[in-house]
Computed example of a mutant assay.
Amino acid sequence: MVRIPITDRYVISLGCRVSVEHGPSVTKVNWSVTHLPEGGSPRPARGDREIGVICPRCRRSFSVRVETLTKARIKQRVQRALGWLLVLSLLATIPLLIQLGGRTVEEGDDQAVDNIGTLFLLAAAGVIVGPSLLFSASMHDGVGKLRLIRADGRKTMWVRGHRLF
């Protein structure tokens, strides 16, 4: 995992799609990534701020939302804490699931089936959601919500050919 330190300065890593190569089993997308502004810019002191950015490759206008330093750090810490909590919950749910799964259940005992189903869902959440939260916490930098600004000034929800890195 790549750990991104969240500092009082931000850099927008804007990628513009250069080409797409289709193979028999793989599709490769080549990106031209630009880091804007060079050297970084100070984060907003209060509230989120929308920053206007122009792609240097295709000259399209975009807006990006930048979070405050404290909000970005709190989001990163909460995601990391929840991720570790779910991963560590596997230490309890998997042994209980193995123990209850090996028991013989009386016919008509719905409680035992409900317990195994609940433990199975908790274990699945720990296996899938826990590492996903840890990964997203390590990639969170407080810069997001890339929107294309149209000629009439409205912002689009879907941005084709561009993304934040």
Rank of each mutant, 00 (worst) to 15 (best):
T104M: 11
D48G: 12
A123T: 15
Q79D: 14
V143R: 05
G39Q: 10
V20P: 04
T70N: 12
R17T: 10
S13W: 08
C55L: 08
V2I: 12
T118A: 12
P95R: 00
D48E: 15
R43M: 01
P5F: 07
H162G: 09
V105N: 00
R150K: 15
L91Y: 11
L134S: 09
V11W: 02
I12N: 04
K145Q: 13
A125L: 14
L133Y: 06
T27F: 00
M139C: 00
R49E: 15
K145G: 03
E21V: 14
V159M: 03
W31A: 11
V64K: 10
W31M: 11
S32N: 14
E107F: 13
T104R: 11
R77E: 12
R163V: 10
L14K: 02
W158T: 04
C58Q: 07
E107Y: 05
S32A: 13
R3H: 14
M157C: 07
A151S: 13
L88T: 09
R154S: 15
P42N: 08
L134D: 03
V18E: 14
E21S: 14
A92D: 09
S138I: 06
K75M: 05
G47C: 10
T7F: 00
Q76P: 03
I94E: 00
I12R: 05
I116K: 06
A45W: 14
A45N: 13
G52H: 07
G23H: 10
L122H: 14
G144H: 15
D114F: 07
L148G: 01
V66T: 13
L36M: 09
H22R: 13
I12Q: 07
R73A: 03
G108R: 08
F62A: 06
M1Q: 07
R154Q: 14
L82T: 11
S19I: 02
G117F: 08
R3T: 11
T104D: 09
A45V: 15
V159A: 06
Y10L: 06
Q111M: 01
P5L: 05
H35K: 11
I149F: 08
L90K: 04
I4A: 02
V20G: 00
F165M: 03
G117Q: 06
D109G: 05
I54Q: 04
L36N: 07
V29A: 03
K71N: 12
T27L: 03
V66F: 09
L134K: 01
G47T: 08
F120N: 03
